[in-house]
Computed example of a mutant assay.
Amino acid sequence: MSDPKSKQLLHLVMGGRVKDPRTLEFQDPHSVHVVGVYPSYDEAVDAWRSQAQRTVDDAEMKYVIVHLHKLLDPEALGK
């Protein structure tokens, strides 16, 4: 059973080919690869690292972690 005091913090891992490696503007937003949604940052980092290492030789491929919990509950950020 999970700890009732621990709060679920969802994270999305996604990536794809970007127009410029210094930005996050995807060449084709319809082809963004959604790796998955993870219940903890540690799990998201593991998934991100796996995908990023797989594409390390392609400078135009970029994977990111999106903190969904911050988007779902923006009022919690000030607490």
Rank of each mutant, 00 (worst) to 15 (best):
K79A: 00
Y41P: 05
P29A: 04
K79V: 00
L77V: 07
D28F: 10
L9S: 10
S6G: 02
K7F: 08
L24R: 07
R22N: 08
H69S: 06
D46R: 06
L9P: 02
P74C: 06
S2A: 05
H11R: 07
A47Q: 06
V45E: 12
V45A: 04
V35F: 13
S6V: 12
K79W: 03
A76I: 10
E25I: 14
E25P: 02
V35A: 08
T23V: 09
H69Y: 15
R22K: 06
W48R: 14
L10N: 13
W48N: 03
S2Q: 13
G36H: 07
R17T: 13
L10C: 08
Q53E: 15
P74V: 05
H69A: 01
V66S: 15
K19D: 01
H67M: 06
T23G: 11
G78C: 01
L9G: 01
Y63G: 01
M14T: 00
Y38N: 04
A52S: 14
L68A: 11
L9I: 08
M61E: 13
D3K: 05
Q8M: 09
A59K: 07
V66R: 13
G36D: 00
K5V: 11
K79S: 03
L9H: 12
D28N: 15
Y41D: 07
R49V: 09
G78N: 15
R17E: 15
E75V: 06
Y41E: 11
Q8H: 05
L71A: 01
G36N: 08
S31R: 14
H67F: 13
D42I: 03
E75F: 08
H33Y: 12
G78V: 00
Y41C: 00
G15V: 02
L12W: 14
P21E: 07
S31A: 03
A76M: 05
Y63D: 11
A47V: 00
Q51C: 07
D73Q: 10
Q8C: 06
V66Q: 14
K79G: 03
L12M: 15
V13M: 05
L71M: 13
V56G: 00
Q27W: 07
V34F: 14
S6R: 09
E75W: 04
D20M: 07
K19A: 07
A47K: 11
A44Y: 02
V37F: 11
D20K: 08
E75H: 09
P29M: 11
H11C: 11
K79P: 08
Y41A: 01
A59H: 05
E43G: 01
E25S: 11
R54K: 15
H69N: 09
F26Q: 01
W48S: 02
V13C: 08
E25Q: 12
W48V: 01
V32R: 14
S6F: 09
P39C: 01
M14L: 15
L71C: 04
S50E: 14
K70Y: 08
L77R: 11
L9R: 15
D3V: 02
I65H: 04
D73E: 12
K5M: 09
D42W: 10
